[in-house]
């Protein structure tokens, strides 16, 4: 069934979205490239992009990548078993459980991160309870650990949902067939479940890795501004130092990483289909 009678009306219907995409995606992107590739006096330059190689900047970029990878890995290790449990329940109930995971997202992300700050502080809620129970206190606020915790907490739903969806879509008959043909639990998992859930895993990884790589709010709040990520540097260039050229140049570097991530995802996605 055709939704729109002619190509023309389809184009007409799509025009608001195309206009939206041009105004809010294409134009800003062009501006980022314009600023990133020019200097303050307007001349063309690669200096802004090359700045990433300076010691302070490259250190922040490396740190961001490491923390983003750790967070993505932790999210994956937490989400996959959970996705399997949810998918295996096959009850109406799991709709509620999935809602439970989305529920915190109804609250503002900054507020939730701020809450972690008050929970983890030296004299915060968690330590007060630990002290009351005469247990050793927890000192992870303003460390890399706290930032990873914040990232995992905030981005976990983005990993759970695609993995759960992918697992839920696997036809039970395929698994039963594998069992009939003599595959054990491990073999079924490795050769049937895992490959079939790959698209979910990949989109989950992208959806966690990219925001984790670019965040600056989490590192400011839970890192006490002591741990500088590449997102913090870009934010500072725009808000504190008023250097749009350098800020845009560094954003372009970050974009390269994001595009790389998406290429890898696309390649393995196609591989899966073949």
């Amino acid at each position: 069934m055709k939704l729109f009678k002619s190509k023309r009306s389809a184009g007409l219907m799509a025009s608001p979205y195309i206009a939206w995409a041009i105004i809010f995606i294409v134009v800003p992107l062009c501006m980022v490239f314009y600023y990133g590739l020019t200097s303050a006096d307007g001349g063309f330059t690669f200096d802004n992009i090359a700045t990433i190689m300076k010691p302070g900047y490259i250190k922040a970029l490396k740190r961001s990548i490491v923390l983003a990878i750790i967070s993505t890995l932790v999210c994956f290790l937490l989400s996959y078993p959970l996705g399997m449990i949810l998918a295996s329940m096959k009850l109406k109930k799991n709709a509620y459980i999935v809602t439970l995971f989305i529920l915190p997202m109804w609250m503002n992300f900054l507020l939730r991160t701020l809450t972690w700050m008050t929970l983890l502080e030296g004299k915060g809620v968690i330590n007060t309870i630990l002290e009351f129970l005469h247990l050793p206190t927890l000192n992870i606020i303003n460390t890399n650990g706290a930032i990873v915790l914040g990232m995992v907490y905030n981005f976990l739903p983005f990993m759970i949902l695609p993995i759960y969806n992918a697992l839920n879509r696997i036809d039970e008959n395929v698994i039963n067939a594998a069992r009939d043909l003599g595959a054990g639990t491990v073999q079924t998992f490795l050769r049937i479940t895992l490959p079939l859930s790959m698209p979910g895993i990949l989109s989950g990884i992208t959806m966690v890795f990219i925001p984790a790589l670019t965040t600056f709010a989490i590192s400011t709040m839970l890192g006490g501004s002591k741990i500088l990520l590449i997102g913090n540097i870009i934010e500072q260039e725009f808000t504190q130092l008023y250097d749009w050229h350098l800020g845009s140049g560094l954003s372009i570097v970050l974009m390269i990483f994001i595009i790389l991530n998406m290429i890898i995802e696309n390649l393995s996605d196609n591989g899966g289909n073949n």
């Binding site: 250190k59 501004s225 500088l228 540097i233 504190q240 130092l241």
Partner: peptide, 13 residues
């Protein structure tokens, strides 16, 4: 000043 401050903030500790 900004470069110096950036060096401080990005230093490992």
């Amino acid at each position: 000043y900004n470069d110096a401050w950036m060096e401080v903030k990005s230093a490992d500790y």
